[in-house]
Design a protein around this nucleic acid. Structure first.
Lengths: 125, 125
DNA sequence: CTAGAAGCTCACATCAATGTCAGAGGCAAG
DNA sequence: CTTGCCTCTGACATTGATGTGAGCTTCTAG
């Protein structure tokens, strides 16, 4: 498929797909006239790239991890595996952080609701 | 305290503190010569701002939520409470997303480790 | 009083991902 | 063949939080 179709299938803009390629996250074969062509595999790959992006990984980091989804255990797999473990830990830490923040928000909301109750009681009582 | 002390206590740069004020996240009293002065409360407030920042909230969103930490249940509390609930949900969704991504990373690592085992067995066997 | 550290404002720089525009070429349907 | 859509490259714009530097003032320690 050409880039427009990949874009519409993945919901990622054409511009971003080209950027991903520029950053080494995505490859394409070129037709004789220079147009990019992709296989169905790329749909899944782009989805995974998006997943990592929303997890807060930078394109550079993603580039370091993604090769092993293509050909697992190439010579660079040791470093990649370590990198993945490291990002996994960072992710775990971030998740914990977000949960604490959510708890803090919950607390804040409870305080607000309680305060609102206090305001209401004098009127009701 | 002055801005430098607040910065070193919170680990946030002086530049960022001034930016927070510019965005309405933080207030300060000014000395006659124009220097910002803060109370100990601001230390905690800055920490909370940081917490929300790392949770992915924008300064504009934070500005909408933070007033209710100061004076809970002012007239705008209805909107603020709704905004908080909304951000809480967004946060929950994001947490779920991150957990799924972590799972995907775990799967990837498992595949890589398995592949490595496969490589080792022929040598060991 | 003086030197150095710290504050002030204003403005421009940076980074990463993406949008957008321009100018040119490719491709399929009438 | 032409028309309209898609694609190409290359460049500049944008957004948000922060860095950085200039030029000036204020505070503090000796």
């Amino acid at each position: 498929m050409r880039i427009g179709e990949l874009a519409s299938r993945t919901g990622v803009s054409v511009r971003s797909l080209r950027y991903y390629e520029e950053q080494g996250l995505l490859t394409s074969t070129r037709s004789s006239s220079g147009q990019r062509h992709y296989t169905d595999n790329e749909v899944e790959r782009v989805a995974f790239i998006q997943r990592l992006y929303t997890a807060g990984l930078s394109s550079r980091t993603i580039a370091e991890l993604l090769p092993c989804t293509e050909s697992p255990s190439t010579e660079n797999s040791d470093a990649a595996l370590e990198r993945m473990a490291q990002e996994r830990d960072r992710l775990s830490a971030h998740i914990g952080d977000l949960i604490r923040t959510r708890d803090a928000l919950d607390g804040l909301m409870a305080v607000n609701r309680a305060h609102r109750e206090q305001l209401r009681v004098p009127l009701a009582g």
